Deep mutational scan, measured.
Amino acid sequence: AGSTTLRAVGKLQVRLATKTEPKKLEKYLQKLSALPMTADILAETGIRKTVKRLRKHQHVGDFARDLAARWKKLVLVD
């Protein structure tokens, strides 16, 4: 499952970095939220930084902030 999640995170990371349409960004964040994330995947992909960049986004900022905070707890636990 780890390598599958890693690939999925990579694809979503590229999309988050290149797309600007709020509905698409929200969809990608929801998909990321549903993935079985680990501290290793967060470290290897840097996805948390990508998501943190969206914290001030008018439409998806709250979602991005919550997701980044949830992942921060995951990193602190591991």
Rank of each mutant, 00 (worst) to 15 (best):
R55S: 15
F63N: 00
R15P: 04
G46M: 04
L35N: 05
K24H: 10
A8V: 13
T38N: 10
D40V: 15
L32R: 02
A68C: 13
E44D: 07
T4G: 11
K52R: 07
R7A: 14
M37T: 00
M37R: 03
A64F: 08
L35Q: 03
I47C: 04
P36T: 09
V77K: 10
P36M: 05
T38Y: 00
L16D: 05
R55G: 14
P36E: 10
D78I: 05
K49L: 13
G2I: 09
L29G: 01
K73E: 14
K23V: 10
I47H: 02
D40P: 06
K31S: 10
G46Q: 06
Y28V: 12
L35C: 03
V60L: 06
L74K: 01
R70A: 07
G46S: 06
T38K: 03
G2Y: 08
R48F: 15
I47W: 02
I41G: 02
P22R: 03
L74S: 05
V60M: 00
D66Y: 04
L35R: 00
M37A: 01
D66M: 08
V51D: 01
K52D: 14
V51K: 06
Q58G: 09
T45S: 06
R15T: 07
K11E: 15
L35H: 00
K49Q: 14
H57L: 13
R15A: 15
V14I: 10
R15L: 15
T18K: 07
Q58H: 12
L42M: 08
E21P: 07
Q30M: 08
K27L: 12
T38E: 00
H57A: 05
L74I: 08
T20I: 07
R48V: 14
L76E: 13
D62V: 04
Q58N: 11
Y28W: 12
H59K: 08
Y28G: 03
A68P: 02
I41P: 01
L29F: 03
H57R: 04
K72P: 01
L32F: 09
Q58P: 14
T20G: 09
L32I: 01
D62F: 00
L54C: 07
G46W: 04
K56N: 14
R55L: 12
D78N: 05
A39M: 11
Q13D: 02
K73W: 05
T38W: 03
L16E: 06
S33W: 04
K73I: 05
L67H: 02
K23T: 13
R7Y: 07
R65L: 04
A43P: 02
K52G: 08
K73G: 09
V51I: 08
E26D: 06
T45G: 03
L25S: 02
G46P: 03
K72I: 00
T5Q: 07
A64Y: 00
R70L: 04
V9I: 04
D40Y: 15
R7N: 12
A39G: 06
E21V: 04
D40R: 12
A69P: 01
L76N: 11
T50F: 11
T50D: 09
A68K: 04
R48K: 04
E44G: 04
A8L: 14
L12M: 08
K52P: 03
R55N: 04
P22I: 03
G61M: 00
H57Q: 03
I47N: 00
D40W: 15
A34Y: 00
A64V: 02
P36K: 06
L42I: 12
V77F: 07
G46I: 00
R53Q: 14
R55W: 13
L6A: 07
D62L: 02
T18P: 12
V14M: 11
T18M: 12
D66V: 09
T5K: 05
T38Q: 04
K19D: 15
V60T: 02
P22L: 04
A8Q: 11
K73S: 12
L54D: 05
D78A: 08
R53L: 13
K52S: 14
K52F: 05
R15Y: 15
L25R: 00
Q58C: 14
L35D: 02
L74R: 02
K19I: 15
L54T: 02
K27R: 09
D40K: 13
L42D: 05
E44K: 07
G2R: 07
P36Y: 11
R70F: 05
K72S: 10
T18E: 15
A43V: 11
A17L: 09
L67Y: 03
L76P: 13
D62H: 06
T50Q: 07
L16K: 01
D78Q: 07
I47Y: 03
L67S: 01
K49G: 14
L42Y: 08
T5D: 12
D40E: 13
V60I: 07
D40H: 10
R53H: 11
E21F: 06
V75D: 09
R55M: 15
L6D: 04
